[in-house]
Design a protein around this nucleic acid. Structure first.
Lengths: 204, 204
DNA sequence: GTCTATAGCTTGATAGAC
DNA sequence: GTCTATCAAGCTATAGAC
């Protein structure tokens, strides 16, 4: 598609604005970040920005979509999608993701505050988050059922309930970590995950 | 102290404002609710409100304190404090609390949005939430250690990690429930709790 | 595509009358 | 204790020049 990395990233104003918006929403949250600030840091004025994204909400949605694209490229060395991983890799990926999140406070803040904010049915990002949670849950249920069929799950582990637990743990641990950065998100998550498996990760 | 319930509740403007503030903060969040709106719904003007609570932050803190009082009175038939329950009662109380929360969306919204918002060190409610989480965690660790000493915990259950899990599950399940009211918060929490105990709640 | 300028609104908070 | 009036600041969004 492109010759080098820079060209792939795209040097149009749109892309610069999106990256800046993502960074600032991440650092300060959606409501606390003004269109003016994003525009200024992008090297244009706010009406200039609003030419590309007609409203602040539109900018948010575009930034979230961009984030998903970047996430996909960065997290998988190949072209592997999260949803395509097998059961065990899925769980390993969750723990690794928690460890990775612990290096990006702003992004954790963005998704934590936004996922609560977007709980309101009339929020611009409501559908985005409903879909996000539903697909994450579906992927986890599928992975857990796969492990169950292979006899890899301890007795009493119910895929549907466990999927909800895993998502809740990730969200809840993020809050605790934001309140107290000493919190070991990945460790706590790994503790739960290993309790699910007949052959925990420690033992190979 | 008083002759009837009404007098106990207090009919001063202060109390009316506090209840209104609690309700509106719960429905819309702290930042999205203006002092004007609260005042109007309380039947006064906003300078009238600011006579009683000099700043919006002071109002928030007073409303949170009031909530804790109401909570204490309502939840415990006697004078028993949450922190005074024994290990098993503590866990039962968590599950019961989750079920009770499922009847009060507004309150769940308030604490969900506020606990993320207050993650910022300069937020007016930051210390309140840091203390809240620390004391809840300490109480749970104490209760779990108690159960452990009595041989009631399954092998491999570590009190410190499990306490963090329980708090994270409560927070995370609330988000899922807010996004989809079909979510069974109490059921999911009970599933985790029963996995901790040698003698689950089902079997007495 | 990007600018200057500004409309039009909401916010938290204050001054001072009653 | 509550009001009217007002401030200064912030915001999103629009109009129109270039």
């Amino acid at each position: 598609m492109t010759i080098d990395g820079r060209a792939l990233r795209g040097d149009t104003t749109r892309q610069v604005v999106l990256d800046t918006a993502l960074e600032m929403f991440a650092k300060q949250g959606y409501r606390a970040t003004s269109v003016r600030d994003i525009a200024a840091r992008s090297g244009i004025t706010h009406p200039g920005l609003l030419y590309h994204f007609p409203t602040k909400q539109a900018l948010l949605m575009a930034a979230l979509k961009r984030r998903d694209e970047v996430d996909c490229i960065e997290e998988d060395d190949g072209v592997v999608e999260f949803a395509d991983l097998d059961g065990r890799a899925l769980l390993a990926h969750l723990v690794a993701g928690a460890a990775k999140n612990a290096t990006k406070r702003g992004l954790v803040e963005l998704f934590a505050s936004l996922s609560v904010e977007a709980t309101a049915p009339d929020h611009p990002a409501h559908e985005y988050f409903v879909d996000r949670y539903a697909s994450l849950r579906a992927t986890l249920v599928r992975g857990l059922e796969e492990l169950d069929a292979a006899g890899q799950l301890r007795p009493g582990v119910v895929p549907a309930v466990t999927a909800a637990h895993l998502i809740a743990l990730m969200d809840g641990l993020q809050i605790q970590w934001l309140l107290d950065p000493q919190t070991d998100m990945a460790g706590a998550l790994a503790g739960y995950v290993n309790g699910l498996l007949v052959h925990p990760f420690d033992a190979g």
